[in-house]
Write a protein that binds this DNA or RNA. Structure first.
Lengths: 151, 151
DNA sequence: TCTATATAGATGCAATTGCATCGATAAGGA
DNA sequence: TCCTTATCGATGCAATTGCATCTATATAGA
């Protein structure tokens, strides 16, 4: 953790990254809201749960995947449950925990969100860059990940 | 605004963009907090005002530059003023408005924040990619901007 | 001039977030 | 076994955000 000043190219790329990512999120959230749909964070959780299948996931596993704080996951799950999109099941071998599973309504909601979200991605990314450029971008961004994951 | 589904490369690049940008912001905010400094948004405003010089800026001009909603700028400026980092001056030719100018204390705060912020950028961007790669990244991101600005 | 509309900025209220901490169960060690 | 510590998830409270709206001034048009 050395204290140094950044190269001009680094500052420029940082600025672009901040502005572009914020703007793209903003536009996507707007599109969802315009469609009467819940925010992006809901999709992230529903997506993870859908991938996880019938076994569901423990909340703490979700915390690791969706870049949300523990208390935010806790509260988001409460909202999802209140809307009938997920269900919480007690877990046998750990009295503290629970397993969260997506419901059919949750899968349906996920599809609805994706219809808008996916179109948004297509418009904002797919239409602007070629497949090769998108791969290049993904590659460069991948090298900025903090724990240099290997996925 | 056609409804279509995105290419796999677009989805992958989108996912990386979302995760990486959120994580980098998170880490930078952490570093600022650890140094007892205010959040990034304060830097953005102080930076714009410092660039603007003695003439200062009108709040609505600030809204256009920092990606914040009007009411957020209004309230952030109130906090900055309360901390003596900016001052609000009435503007002669428009009785509705005001001009916001950075104070010496504000400039000092900007320097303090930059010491941490800049180091963070250097560590998270400059150390991970070469100058050429950073330029490539900035170029690709630039093409994703919504109003395809020409800066 | 008088009225209608638009723009600058602030604010009341509800929802969300962050922070700290809590209650409950698990796991590890004497 | 008993005690200490760690982990899982929830929650009280304060700060921040989003939304809608408000006040005040400016501008345009009849």
């Amino acid at each position: 953790m050395t204290k140094k000043s950044p190269a001009p190219e680094a500052v420029k790329a940082w600025g672009r990254l901040m502005r572009v990512s914020r703007r793209l999120v903003e536009k996507t959230e707007e599109a969802l809201k315009a469609g009467g749909l819940p925010p992006l964070a809901w999709y992230d959780v529903l997506h993870e749960l859908a991938e996880a299948g019938e076994g569901g996931l423990r909340p703490f596993e979700l915390v690791g995947r969706v870049l949300l704080a523990q208390y935010n996951v806790s509260r988001l799950l409460a909202r999802l449950e209140a809307d009938g999109l997920v269900e919480k099941l007690p877990v046998s071998d750990d009295g503290r925990g629970q397993t969260v599973r997506i419901t059919p309504a949750g899968r349906e909601m996920r599809r609805c969100i994706w219809a808008v979200y996916g179109a948004s991605i297509a418009n904002m990314m797919g239409d602007k860059l070629s497949a090769a450029e998108l791969e290049m971008l993904a590659g460069l961004l991948g090298r900025l990940r903090d724990p240099p994951t290997g996925d």
